[in-house]
Design a protein around this nucleic acid. Structure first.
Lengths: 86, 86, 86, 86
DNA sequence: GTTGATCTTATTTCTC
DNA sequence: GAGAAATAAGATCAAC
């Protein structure tokens, strides 16, 4: 049971909004792709310098994970405290 | 095998370079995460406006593909033209 | 540039294989759904008993994570050792 | 707030129940992971045989949807029939 | 050229 | 049912 016919007609206003939304997202996607390229360049530079890219990635992954774990511990504590309240 | 033996083989200079590299990449990763958040916010806003996010993603995916195909065709054309020159 | 016409004709043998494959996967998917239902029932039972489901999930998640981290540390060690070799 | 205060309020009986619950759920999760692995193996085998995994997944998805829609229609039919009775 | 790995996207699941 | 979180899937890219 699809809902294909709810709004077969789009108002000019929402059409305009649609265009703007798509344009905005596409711009952001471009920016994101640019940064991804920058990161790739950094890794390439590091590799050229003699670093092991695999280990570099591993280190960065670990550091990120550590940061997340601190946050998670706080959340866990909150969960327990909330359960004690309830 | 101690952990020390891993770092022992790294000179102070390359250690400094390592730190800078990691810092640079982490900064870029942060920027990237920020943009991803912006994109997510745009989709959320569009959803709140009444758009179907799945369709929105589909549209953007297709437009990207179209752009790529146009580029590919231009490259192919260039290849042919170059071949005619050569 | 799609490859729709590579094998428009399917041999009876591979057709049979296709049917068997689909049947096998669908059976496995059913089993999986059944287990998911069992898990949900366990949580419901625990809740009825008076346990906090959120914390229960948190505990199970943690224990799983702990197990994975032990594995990961071993892998990380391997990565470093391999890098020292190379 | 010490950690002890969390467990202090749990009776030995419910502690036992907690252990059993966790053990039961972890066993079920393992089974589930095993089946997921079996499914992945089936897809891998199909791929090795020459099938397109993406299409295979699409077929299975559609068949599942079809089954659900048939059930929905039957439920709807039942609803109507019940309404006629009432 | 095929597997492995990584990163992103999509779908499902759970909670509120 | 809406939003967040977990899981699964797909795409991409490097390495062997």
């Amino acid at each position: 049971m699809t809902e294909a016919s709810i709004t077969d007609t789009i108002t000019p206003a929402s059409q305009e909004k649609l265009k703007q939304t798509i344009a905005a997202i596409e711009r952001l996607e471009e920016d994101k792709a640019g940064i991804s390229a920058d990161i790739a360049a950094k890794y390439a530079e590091a590799k050229a310098f003699g670093f092991d890219v695999g280990i570099l990635r591993e280190i960065i992954k670990r550091r990120k994970k550590d940061r997340q774990e601190i946050e998670e511990k706080e959340m866990l504590l909150d969960t327990y405290l909330a359960a004690l309240d309830g």
